[in-house]
Write a protein that binds this DNA or RNA. Structure first.
Length: 448
RNA sequence: GGCCCCGUCGUCUAAUGGUUAGGACGGCACUCUUUCAAGGUGUAAAUACGGGUUCGAUUCCCGUCGGGGUCACCA
């Protein structure tokens, strides 16, 4: 059994599209599952539209996702003119192609047309079964702007052959390209690869995902703070399913499980909410240090913007709080920008009217704060590290007096917020001195 | 419009002749709880329609309808 060779041949005419990323992923999963390889090349025969920055964006995106493309020099169609010329000549000589009318853009050149045998082509598709086309509708299609300038279909066929590609896995939008490529390949005497056309990723309106639907490029999702592992996981499950209820996979696990026969036929709508859920799930599985690396740059940047310098001791205490409140880095940024973290670093603004819990009086609140202060003062500084310990000290009193009436003023005194994590966590982050001071401040506001 | 492909909850999907049609996201409710978040429990929600075949169809066949892709000297 020969080794499986798939390929991912993007055209650098735009940013790395999320759908393109999934095609790359499927090609990689399919090949890796069978210990084969996925080859890479740039299809850059359209000189008008290609850009170096797009090449870099695609390469960066692939590396970021963890999809390897090998170490060898990158193949570019633009650098393979000799190879194509040789084959075009042979096609011409054998009568499979001919020079036709003058080029639209370059009247000094004659375009090359393929002599269509008008055959009925049936090919086996791993996703769809047998697909049949009557190629006579294709007429004698153009395969080169000139002898020196091959067009897409010709170049693809030649490159796939030279790279030894055994399986062509690509988007469903290529399904109607397949018969004409088969025609060319048969004229050239090449063996036919196997095909698999995977369903498209759709926008909520069920049409092809495009700019007007929001983010389409991988780079945008990366900028939103999604994890590569979450994107890989989500993309793999869009249009493919292992046949059971499991949803969380690493790339390695996907390689083990992947099977092209289980790829679906219908297009799948891209759901940002579910992607967020995957991101959170992958985030939850991160080690403390990985998570730190994940959030630190953004945390630091967003906090600095508010004039806050973060120190490591506070940062470590904040980690669990952050972890349970965000699904992506975007969430973290929004939280910080909304001022939800300010009170860990600077004194909150207190509105005296908000200190007592609704339906309790200022006097009660002041009394509770006083008692809580006494209780907390009995603890050693280092005991503040353990918020369970803090809870144990206050809980009996709070339970006796009514938890809300005791805990709300405490939490508000510490945070100045109507919504926040629980007071024990905040106490723990702030430490003994700062906590007691804030409680005193709140108390004094009430006695006025 | 021609050609090609597709059609299970709102969304991603499981179940290929026999299930109370399962799971996940989202929604809702409850719970935990001082608030928020997270968590736990529960709940609503689907086989596009019409014909066949069959003792029995989500599943097989035909038609209808619906959706998508593609029809370049782009890829």
């Amino acid at each position: 059994m020969s080794t499986v060779i798939t390929r991912f041949p993007p055209s650098p005419t735009g940013l790395f599209h999320i759908g393109s990323a999934r095609t790359a992923l499927f090609n990689y999963l399919f090949a890796a599952h069978q210990k084969g390889v996925m080859h890479f090349r740039f299809e850059d025969t359209d000189r008008e539209r290609i850009k170096k920055e797009y090449e870099n964006d695609i390469l960066d995106g692939l590396a970021w996702l963890g999809i390897p493309i090998g170490d060898s020099e990158i193949v570019r169609q633009s650098e393979r003119g000799d190879i194509y010329r040789k084959h075009i000549k042979s096609l011409l000589e054998k009568g499979h192609a001919y020079e036709a009318e003058e080029g639209k853009d370059d009247p000094s050149q004659k375009v090359i047309r393929f002599k269509n045998p008008n055959a009925s082509i049936t090919f086996k598709d791993h996703v769809r079964g047998d697909v049949t086309f009557d190629t006579s509708e294709l007429k004698d299609f153009v395969i080169g702007r000139s002898i020196d300038e091959p067009l897409y279909h010709l170049a693809v066929v030649i490159d796939d052959h030279e790279m030894g590609v055994t399986h062509v896995i690509r988007g469903e939008d290529h399904i109607s390209n397949t018969p004409r490529q088969i025609l060319i390949l048969e004229a050239l005497g090449f063996t036919r690869p196997e095909y698999a056309h995977i369903p498209l990723i759709l926008a909520p309106d069920r049409t092809k995902l495009s700019k007007r639907h929001g983010a389409t490029s991988l780079a945008e999702y990366r900028a939103m703070g999604f994890l590569p592992s979450a994107i890989v996981n989500y993309l793999a499950l869009l249009g493919w399913n292992p046949g059971n209820d499991r949803e969380l996979y690493t790339l390695e696990e996907l390689i083990r499980e992947f099977s092209i026969e289980k790829v679906h036929k219908g297009g799948a709508i891209f759901d940002l909410e579910k992607l967020k859920w995957f991101n959170r799930a992958h985030m939850d599985r991160m080690s403390q240090s990985t998570f730190t690396d994940y959030i630190l740059p953004e945390l630091d940047r967003a906090l600095k913007q508010r004039g806050i310098e973060i120190d490591t001791s506070i940062f470590e205490k904040l980690l669990p709080i952050i972890r349970e409140r965000i699904a992506t880095i975007n969430d973290l940024r929004e939280l910080i920008e909304a001022g939800e973290f300010d009170y860990y670093f600077k004194l909150p603004q207190l509105d005296p009217r908000k200190i007592p819990q609704k339906a309790t009086s200022s006097e009660e609140a002041r009394e509770h704060l006083g008692r809580v202060h006494e209780l907390l003062a009995t603890l050693e500084m280092k005991e503040y590290a353990d918020h369970a310990r803090l809870k144990n000290v206050i809980w009996p009193y709070a339970s006796e007096k009514g938890r809300g009436s005791v805990l709300w003023p405490l939490r508000y005194a510490l945070s100045g917020k109507e919504k926040s994590p629980d007071p024990f966590v905040i106490l723990s982050v702030l430490g003994k001195e700062e906590s007691l001071s804030r409680i005193k401040t709140a108390q004094s506001k009430l006695s006025a």
